[in-house]
């Protein structure tokens, strides 16, 4: 199973001090697959995401990307990270750079792309996510939804093999959630491999191939979106869905 997997986690464990935050997590994500990770607060979803590009180290087990285990700190790790796009809940756009500069920084510094080519490609991506008219502005001058779309363009500019999304819409006002989800659905339809932490069931139903339900650091349920939302197998998943559906 791991042979054709783009992202493979094998018996991954992680502790924060005494807290066991990832418990024997196994996961294989195929090329082009969209996996949605769902679960209560503190269940380890962010940690799982961050472990995949080694923003968090793990204590045991292994993680590999495209057949290669994650390297230790250093140049090789930076190189691996450039192949993994990451979109954060709080956008994290570079505050001192314009929208355009945010998108060209990675290609120019990491891939050594020339400025002209990088800017041309950046404008294409910004157009694709619908914020090309904001290219000269600073992040603080944009709405949350616009900022998150720029963040997606910034990640795409590296031509990543896989995109990680950690609750990309949960810091957004309701009217902006859709514009970001639309971009993500489009991305999924173009065949991008995606791991998405989100509670947006609409997105999961439209775009996801698989839903993982995490609880207390363990993956306790794994199924198709339809199956998961209409007929959860575990009590914990049923309990959780009951809570988020009530709101």
């Amino acid at each position: 199973m791991a042979a054709d997997a783009l992202v493979a986690l094998d018996h991954v464990d992680k502790w924060f001090g005494d807290l066991h935050v990832l418990k024997d997590v196994n996961l294989a994500v195929r090329r082009g697959e969209v996996v949605v990770v769902i679960g209560p607060s503190g269940s380890g979803k962010s940690t799982l995401c961050r472990a995949i590009n080694r923003l968090e180290t793990i204590d045991s087990g292994s993680i590999s990307l495209d057949g290669r285990p994650l390297p230790q700190e250093g140049k090789a790790l930076a190189e691996l990270r450039s192949d993994v796009g990451m979109v954060f809940q709080s956008f994290n756009l570079f505050a001192h750079k314009t929208v355009l500069e945010n998108v060209t920084l990675g290609p120019m510094k990491v891939r050594r792309t020339g400025r002209q080519e990088a800017e041309q490609r950046a404008m294409e991506l910004l157009r694709r996510v619908g914020v090309d008219s904001q290219a000269g502005k600073y992040p603080a001058q944009l709405s949350g939804g616009q900022q998150q779309r720029v963040a997606i363009a910034r990640a795409l500019a590296m031509d990543p093999k896989v995109m990680l999304f950690d609750e990309p819409t949960s810091a957004l006002d309701p009217e902006m959630i859709k514009e970001v989800l639309d971009v993500m659905v489009d991305l999924a339809q173009r065949g991008m491999t995606m791991i998405v932490v989100t509670h947006e069931m609409g997105f999961a139903r439209t775009a996801a191939d698989r839903v993982l339900f995490m609880s207390d650091g363990a993956v306790v349920e794994e199924s198709t979106p339809d199956e998961f939302f209409s007929n959860p197998r575990t009590d914990r998943a049923r309990d959780f869905l009951g809570k988020i559906l009530k709101h």
Partner: peptide
């Protein structure tokens, strides 16, 4: 900010 920078491979 630093995390986003590292995440794009800097």
């Amino acid at each position: 900010q630093a995390e986003a920078a590292r995440a794009i491979g800097l």
